[in-house]
Structure formats: C-alpha cells, structure tokens
Amino acid sequence: MKPKQFTEREMNELRKHPYVQSVTSTLITYTDDFKRIFIAEDRDGKLPREIFRDNGFDVDLLGGSRIRKAAYRWRKAYKEQGIEGLNRKQPGLKGKKKEETLEEKNARLEAQIQFLKAENELLKKLEMMERGLKTDR
C-alpha cells in the first residue's frame, strides 16, 4: 500500500513545524532533536501517537502507519547504535567524522543530558514501585 500523499497545503503546514526538517508529497524528514525526544518519551512508556501529538503534530494528518514505521526505525537505530544512530547521516561523509561546530556539539550534549535525565526519572519511578511492592508483603 502506498503512503498517503500530502497536498501542497499539508506540506506547507508540516514545513512550519519546528521538528520537521523537510517534506515531500510522500516523505517527512524529522529533526534529530525530535527523534531524541521521541526515544526519551518512548522509554518513559508513552505511546508513539501520544508523543507525536504532545509535540504538536496532527496525528490524523500523519497517519498511524507513518507514525508506527518511524517509531520502529528510531527504536531499532537507538538499540543498535545508541543516540548517535538517531542522527541524520551527512552525505559524502562515508567513514569520515564530520567536525562539529560548538553549537552542534552543545545541542548534541544538551539532548543527551535531557535523555539521561528522563532515563534517570524512569529508573527512580521503577525503584519506588519496587519498594512499594516489597513493603506491601
């Protein structure tokens, strides 16, 4: 089945979104920041559709299939390569490391900090839940 094709109006609406890098009639490229946010919230137990909606996307416009497929790709990339697996690959840099500007490095480290904070909060909640179960016995 072919993916839903966006109208010109829908593409213009999507282009205005801060977490959209580019849009064609059939493809959306999301920013690396949104992918990191998605993984952090996904690990907190939020559903993909909720994550998209809570970050300002029209989930009906995107469609459930597109959201599920993006979630699958990002989870797989994160599992295999960690946070770096979520970054868009730069064309022509096969096997070469791109030199980061200070702003890019800062943004990457800030995203990593936010992710680790979310992960720590999740672990704290799990620990509290386990303690609650142990004291109930």
Rank of each mutant, 00 (worst) to 15 (best):
Q90T: 14
M129T: 13
K76M: 12
D44T: 15
D60Q: 15
F38H: 08
R43K: 12
K105F: 07
V23F: 08
I113S: 11
T24N: 05
K105P: 01
K89N: 12
D44H: 11
I67K: 04
V59K: 02
K117R: 13
I83F: 15
L27P: 00
D54I: 01
N12G: 04
T31A: 04
E10T: 02
I113L: 10
M11R: 11
P18F: 03
Q5L: 14
F6H: 00
I37C: 01
L62P: 00
E13Y: 08
T101G: 15
K124A: 06
K117Q: 09
E80Y: 04
D60W: 10
K76N: 06
N87F: 10
I39P: 00
G56Q: 02
K69W: 10
Y19T: 01
Q21N: 12
D33G: 09
P48M: 07
L126A: 06
K46I: 00
K35H: 07
V23H: 02
D33N: 10
P18T: 11
A107R: 08
E103K: 15
Y19N: 06
D33V: 06
D42Y: 13
R137A: 08
L122R: 11
E99F: 04
R15Y: 06
D44Y: 05
E121A: 04
G92I: 06
E100N: 15
T101I: 04
I37Q: 04
A77L: 07
F57C: 06
I37S: 04
K46W: 03
N120W: 04
E84R: 15
E99L: 12
K16E: 09
I67S: 02
K125Q: 09
E99M: 09
W74Q: 00
E41F: 03
Q81C: 07
R108V: 07
S25A: 12
P48F: 05
E121S: 08
N120Y: 15
A40Y: 01
Q112C: 14
M129Q: 14
D33I: 06
R36F: 08
E104V: 14
G95W: 03
K35S: 09
I51W: 01
Q114W: 06
A118W: 00
